[in-house]
Design a protein around this nucleic acid. Structure first.
Length: 402
DNA sequence: TCTGGGGTCCTAGGACCC
DNA sequence: TCTGGGGTCCTAGGACCC
C-alpha cells in the first residue's frame, strides 16, 4: 500500500530558536540581518552552526570557520547557543508534530518524520501539512518546512526544496520532474567524496545516477552503497518510520585545543576531562562498555585512532582513562603538535557483571567512590543551573509565556 | 579561510578455528 | 608437510549525517 510520510525540518534551527529567545528578551530579530550561531563566539577555532538567510545570501555557510565568515562580513552578528533553550524549542516542535500523528521518528534535534497514511488522503496532505507548519509558527514563533512523499527519502528530499516556511510534495510520480534534474550531491548520502567519484565518471545529476548500470556503480562506491544509491536515485525507500528510539551504540567526547598542544601534561589533562565526561554518561544510562577507543588529530588534520577490548565491561572512569593513556603512549611520539583528542566507548551493555573481587584491583573501590562523588557533584550543578534558569524566567516573565 | 562535536554504518585485512 | 575455503571476530580507517 502506498504510504504518506511527512518530513518536518526546522528552518536554520539554532538560529531561529536563538532569534525567538532574543525577541522575547526585547532584542532585535537576528533573522533579518546577517547573523550566525556558533559554538563559542570567542574561540577563533569555532565554526558556524547555523546562519541567517541574509548571511547565507552573502555566501556564509554552515560549518564554515567563524574567522572566515567575519572576513566576508565584518558586521556579522555572532551569538552562542543555549542548549537548555534549544531542547525546550525542540520538545515543543516535536509535541506539535506528534499531535498530527503518533507514528513519529525523531531524526535529530530539529527534524522528524511522521507517518500520515492513516491520518489523511494524498489529496488532503498539503493542506494538513500547511496547518502543521502554521501551528508551529504561531505557537512557537519559528518556521519549518514540511516535505511530503510516499517514503522517508522522498519526504526528506522534498523538505529541502525552497525554504523557509514552505510545504512541498515529492510523490513517486514527480521524481523524474522534481528530483532527477538535481545534482548528485543533493541526494541523501552523497557527500563530497562520493560526488567527486560520480562526477569523475560523468554522473552529474540524480537522473543520470538513477539510470546508471549497477556494474560501474558498484565499482565506484562498493556493492552495498551502490544498491542504496540506485534505489534512492529512483525514489525508492521502504524503511519504516521507527517510533522506538534506538539505544546508543557508542558514546564519545572530544576536545579541540585553542592552539596545537605539544606538552604531554596538556594532552593528559584533556584526556582526563573527556574520560570523566564519557564515563559519566555511561553511568547515567546505566551502561557498561567493553571497548575503549581514543584518537588524536594532528595539525594537518590527519587522525590516528586506537581501540582496545576490555576483559570485563566497565563504567569506571579510571579504567577507561588508563586504557586511553596506554594507547596514547603507543601512538604519539610525544613531540608532534596535537590539535584535538577524543575518547569513546562502544560495545555497550546493561549487564551487571559479577566482579571477581579477588582478582580486582583494590584501588577500584577508591575509583568507584570518586565516580560517585563526581556524579553527585554534577547532579547538584545541574539542579542549580535549572533553578537559576527557572528563577530568571519567573522574574522576567519571558519563559512561561509560550 | 583554515576547518566543532556527536553519532552511524561499511569495508578491508589479519587472526583464529574448523 | 602443505594447502584450500568458509565463518567469525577484531581493529583501523573512511564516508556520511545533523
Amino acid at each position: 500500500m502506498s504510504r504518506i510520510i511527512f518530513h518536518i525540518d526546522v528552518n536554520s534551527a539554532f538560529l531561529s530558536w536563538t532569534a525567538v529567545k532574543l525577541l522575547r528578551e526585547g532584542k532585535a530579530d537576528i533573522r533579518l540581518v546577517p547573523s550566525v550561531v556558533s559554538g563559542d563566539p570567542n574561540d577563533r577555532r569555532s565554526i558556524i552552526t547555523a546562519a541567517s538567510i541574509p548571511a547565507k545570501k552573502l555566501g556564509i555557510k554552515t560549518a564554515q570557520p567563524v574567522s572566515m565568515a567575519l572576513r566576508t562580513c565584518p558586521s556579522l552578528v555572532i551569538v552562542g547557543g543555549d542548549w537548555t533553550w534549544f531542547k525546550q524549542c525542540s520538545e515543543g516542535f516535536i509535541d506539535i508534530c506528534r499531535s498530527f500523528s503518533p507514528v513519529l521518528q525523531q531524526f535529530s534535534i530539529d527534524e522528524c518524520f511522521i507517518d500520515m497514511t492513516q491520518r489523511c488522503t494524498p489529496e488532503q496532505a498539503v493542506s494538513v501539512a500547511t496547518r502543521l507548519k502554521d501551528r508551529v509558527r504561531e505557537e512557537l514563533g519559528f518556521t519549518v518546512n514540511v516535505g511530503i512523499g510516499s517514503n522517508k527519502l522522498l519526504a526528506k528530499m522534498a523538505s529541502d526544496f525552497e525554504k523557509p516556511d514552505k510545504v512541498h510534495t515529492l510523490w513517486q510520480s514527480e521524481v523524474e520532474q522534481k528530483m532527477w534534474p538535481l545534482g548528485v550531491r543533493d541526494l541523501l548520502w552523497v557527500g563530497k567524496k562520493t560526488e567527486e567519484r560520480l562526477t569523475a565518471y560523468g554522473i552529474d545529476t540524480i537522473g543520470q545516477l538513477a539510470q546508471l548500470e549497477m556494474g560501474p556503480l558498484t565499482r565506484l562506491v562498493g556493492q552495498k552503497f551502490a544498491h542504496q544509491l540506485h534505489e534512492n536515485a529512483n525514489g525508492r525507500d521502504d524503511s519504516p518510520v521507527e517510533t522506538e528510539r534506538a539505544e546508543a551504540k557508542s558514546i564519545s567526547a572530544e576536545r579541540t585545543f585553542s592552539h596545537d598542544y605539544t606538552d604531554p601534561k596538556d594532552i593528559d589533562r584533556a584526556l582526563f576531562n573527556v574520560a570523566c565526561i564519557v564515563a559519566h554518561r555511561i553511568r547515567r544510562h546505566d551502561f557498561r562498555a567493553s571497548t575503549v577507543s581514543m584518537f588524536i588529530k594532528y595539525k594537518d588534520f590527519s587522525v590516528v585512532q586506537r581501540q582496545t577490548s576490555l576483559s570485563q565491561p566497565t563504567d569506571v572512569t579510571a579504567v577507561i582513562l588508563n586504557e586511553a593513556r596506554r594507547m596514547l603512549r603507543e601512538v604519539w611520539d610525544g613531540t608532534t603538535p596535537i590539535r584535538q583528542v577524543g575518547l569513546g566507548v562502544s560495545k555497550l551493555t546493561h549487564e551487571s557483571v559479577i566482579q571477581m573481587s579477588l582478582f580486582e584491583d583494590p584501588k577500584l573501590d577508591y575509583y568507584r567512590a570518586w565516580d560517585r562523588q563526581y556524579d553527585a557533584q554534577k547532579a547538584r550543578a545541574e539542579d542549580a543551573r535549572m533553578l537559576a534558569y527557572e528563577k530568571h524566567g519567573a522574574d522576567t516573565g519571558k519563559i512561561q509565556e509560550g
